[in-house]
Amino acid sequence: MTTPPLVLSIQSHVAYGHVGNDAAMLPLQLLGIEPVAVHTVQFSNHTGYGEFKGQVFTPAHVQDVLDGLRARGVLERCTAVLSGYLGDAGVGEAILAAVQEVRASQPKAHYLCDPVMGDVGRGVFVRPGIPEFLRKRALSQASVITPNHYEFELLCGGPLTTVQAATQAARSMLRQMHDSQSALIVITSLRTDGLPTDQLATLAVTADKAWLVQTPYVDLHPLPNGMGDVFAAVLLGHLIQDKPIPDAVSRAVSSLYALVSRTEAGQRDLPLVACREQITKPVEIFAAVAVAEA
């Protein structure tokens, strides 16, 4: 029996709903990967349901859990690290220390940082200090980042109105990332001039190539929570399995589209369990098309 790869996933946790680790764990497991989940918060439910109870964990709490994993020799066996909603900028430093420790044993380990900060319509919804931490500290350690369009503009400091402008901005940002020649930026929910208004685009950019994946726009109000968390987990799962970047991005986009398009109107969560087959074998595959560059 082959031992499944381990992924250290440091994200939020809710008792009810699918966000953070509760959106990432099932996709990773279905893709044959063993998640090692460390929670940055524990809430009764995600904010999409309105009022919630629970608490944001302190950096000391997160570090204590990591110390316990370290004592079991777990960190040195992880092949990747995944992070999302932080809750507190201090937790980010504990994550980066864990990334360094994982890479000491696994030099080629991915660190996929989903820079959760905000979205169109909601604005920035994280605590002060987190956007600065992501720009100034996390970016340099990440090998993959998966911002949405709004978050990418926050990271690069300006509006992006064309695919070419987004590609150029991503190339500039790649130079700040870990192992920049193999690093990857994937911008989700891209809506720029020149793209069809009835389509939603995802742009993947490396040091020398770029691809665009387009799907029909699903007009749901409200949109389900946790979409970015699921996307990041599925993408990382395919990258760990050494799928080529365009294939990994195509499959992650296709799985997310399948889940979103099967979400009932008014539902605040993706149907991860009911439609779990769409995570491993999405019924419709949307191709990653190479971007023609000037």
Rank of each mutant, 00 (worst) to 15 (best):
L6R: 15
Q11W: 04
S12H: 09
Y16F: 15
V19D: 02
V19C: 09
V19L: 06
V19A: 14
A23G: 05
L26S: 13
I33Q: 02
I33A: 08
E34L: 09
E34P: 02
A37I: 08
A37R: 09
H39P: 03
G48R: 02
Y49I: 11
F52M: 15
Q55D: 06
F57V: 07
V62F: 07
V62T: 07
D67E: 09
D67K: 14
L69K: 12
R72F: 08
G73P: 09
E76Y: 03
C78L: 06
V81G: 04
V81L: 15
S83F: 07
G84Q: 10
Y85W: 07
G87K: 09
D88H: 15
G92K: 11
A94Q: 15
I95Q: 01
S105L: 05
Q106H: 13
K108P: 00
H110C: 03
P115W: 03
P115H: 11
M117C: 11
M117G: 10
M117T: 07
I130R: 02
L134R: 00
R135L: 10
K136C: 03
A138M: 13
S140F: 04
S140L: 03
Q141T: 13
S143H: 04
I145G: 13
H149N: 08
F152T: 07
F152Y: 05
E153P: 05
P159V: 13
P159C: 12
T162N: 12
V163M: 04
Q168H: 13
A169K: 14
R171I: 05
S172E: 12
S172G: 15
M173D: 00
Q176T: 13
Q176I: 03
H178G: 00
D179R: 11
V186Q: 04
V186E: 02
T188L: 01
S189C: 10
S189L: 03
L190A: 07
L190C: 05
L200D: 00
A201W: 00
A210E: 01
A210L: 05
Q214N: 06
V218Q: 12
D219H: 10
L220W: 02
H221A: 15
P222S: 11
P224F: 03
N225R: 14
G228S: 14
D229P: 06
D229C: 06
V230Q: 05
F231D: 03
L239G: 07
D242F: 03
D242M: 09
D242Y: 00
P244W: 06
I245D: 01
P246W: 10
D247R: 11
A252E: 02
A252V: 12
V253W: 01
A258R: 10
V260L: 07
S261T: 14
R262Q: 12
R262S: 14
T263G: 09
T263E: 06
G266M: 05
Q267G: 01
P271M: 10
L272H: 05
L272S: 09
C275Y: 08
E277Q: 15
Q278P: 01
I279V: 15
T280E: 05
T280N: 11
T280P: 01
A287I: 01
A288Q: 02
V291A: 14
